[in-house]
Design a protein around this nucleic acid. Structure first.
Length: 422
RNA sequence: CGGGCUGUAGUGUAAUGGUAGCACGAGUCCUUCGGGAGGAUUUAGCCCGAGUUCGAAUCUCGGCAGCCCGACCA
């Protein structure tokens, strides 16, 4: 992509009333735009990052046997009355349509849709287990939207739902999803900072589990057991003041962001819809359910909270909007411009995702500043000084070196295969 | 939902009761170009409504909006 054609621009100043680092940097660099409190537009750069994250998650969900679907955002009131959550869910967006005066819900989660949906297809033990997921926008009437992408009123969530014959089968799948989640957080660069965290289990199970990423920007307090590398959410610390795995009482308090959760629903949302299956003996049994969520906006915001410096964002390679930021410095000099165009074309031909700063009216300093702010992993500069080579600098490092074009392309293609890293 | 703070060109700010100013941006022209260049010129603003006052960006009330703290939050 040519930066001269990008409709967004970086801002010289971060918005005055934003304090959250993720909001300041993402808005300043032109990744997102705030429509209103807690509601954002993803701009071209931001949407590329979003899709990177989305694809990492999708791949893992498919590896778990998940079948991707897309459920509606607009829900009928009746489904929510059936589970009691029309009244009980306190951040539900409810409204009455203007013409027909019918009550609707904007979906904050989809148990009320997915359970009756599967009930239309699943009748026998032979139909179980089944796993379905979607990546879709959710609506929650948060009392207080805040901290940029970390707590919004409309946001994207990956929600996976599993349907089982019995609790034993649910337990096994639940473990598997936990392992997948670890891979996902590792892939996006949050592996070392993300802890499996014991949290309240609600009515039906002792615990649920959250994935909490350590950062001062977090709004949750968790207690870490350094022996087991797991944590306990403050919400259950009263009843559980030692590590549930090893009994360790020496726990470390930290602030963290909940980037995902897994939950055993059991029959909570199958029973209200009379969602049952017949076993081998022809007896009717309740379908056993699990649900598993990851907030994508929040995950993207968390990555920025962790990967930035005083100059801007430092994207981990797996989620960066582009791999290479090609800058032509003094591109009015025809040799520089010509060579930069040529390099741009050959990077593209070789499948390297590249943002090409070909702007003629931007000074060298402006281009360097923008490159630091936007945070693409590799900066490749072409100027009068660089001859027929590229000056390569990693965003995360200080050192620069001159490299031949072919050599650089070859190198960058090997990094495309990188998947899990810290 | 309770509390606090704040709303001035596109962005960031100044003016505390008396002519709305500055910087950046954007437009045009010239000179520039390795860390947000310089000159000339143009453009564009007091969140909305009511009140007090000779006079309101400024004071009062109401509304709307944003941020922060708390409560809430599978």
């Amino acid at each position: 992509m040519r930066q001269s054609e990008l409709f967004t621009k970086t801002k010289r100043e971060a918005p005055k009333d934003e304090e959250a680092i993720n909001a300041r940097l993402l808005i300043k660099a032109g990744f997102i735009d705030k429509t209103m409190a807690g509601v954002y537009t993803f701009l071209p750069l931001g949407w590329r990052v979003f899709k990177k994250i989305e694809n990492i998650i999708r791949e893992e969900m498919e590896a778990l046997g998940g079948q991707e679907i897309l459920m509606p955002s607009l829900h009928p009131k009746t489904n929510w009355e059936q589970t009691g959550r029309w009244e009980a869910y306190d951040s539900l967006f409810k409204f009455t349509s203007f013409y027909s005066k019918i009550d609707y819900v904007l979906g904050p989660t989809h148990e009320e849709i997915v359970s009756p949906l599967l009930a239309k297809f699943v009748f026998s033990y032979k139909d179980l287990p089944k796993y379905v997921f979607q990546i879709q926008n959710k609506f929650r009437d948060e009392k207080r939207a805040k901290s940029g992408l970390l707590r919004g009123r409309e946001f994207f969530m990956k929600d996976l739902y599993s349907f089982h014959r019995d609790e034993n089968d649910l337990d096994k799948y639940y473990e598997k999803v936990g392992k997948s989640y670890e891979k996902i957080f590792k892939s996006v660069g949050l592996g070392k900072l993300t802890y499996l965290t014991f949290a309240s289990g609600g009515t039906f199970s002792k615990y649920s589990h959250e994935f909490q990423t350590l950062t001062p920007a977090g709004e949750d307090i968790i207690y870490i057991c350094d022996k087991c590398k797991i944590a306990i959410n403050k919400e259950i610390i009263e009843e559980q003041n030692n590590c549930p795995q090893c009994g360790n009482k020496n726990l470390r308090e930290e602030k963290a962001i909940e980037v995902g959760n897994i939950f055993k629903l059991k029959t909570k949302y199958s029973a209200p819809f009379n969602f049952k299956y017949k076993n081998e003996k022809g007896e009717l049994n309740d379908v056993i359910m699990g649900c598993y969520g990851i907030g994508l906006n929040r995950l993207m915001g968390t990555v920025v909270e962790i990967y930035h410096d005083e100059k801007g964002i430092v994207w981990p390679e797996a989620v960066a909007p582009f791999k290479v930021h090609l800058l032509s410095v003094k591109c009015q000099v025809s040799g520089v411009r010509k060579f930069a165009d040529k390099v741009y074309n050959s990077l593209q031909k070789n499948g390297v995702e590249v943002l090409y700063d070909d702007r003629e009216d931007a000074s060298a300093g402006e281009k360097f500043s923008d490159a630091d702010l936007i945070g693409i992993p590799y900066r490749a500069v072409i100027s009068e000084k660089t001859g027929n080579k590229l000056e390569i600098k990693k965003r995360s490092e200080k050192k620069v070196n001159l490299t031949g074009v072919k050599e650089f392309i070859k190198y960058i293609r090997t990094t495309n295969k990188l998947r899990y890293y810290e």
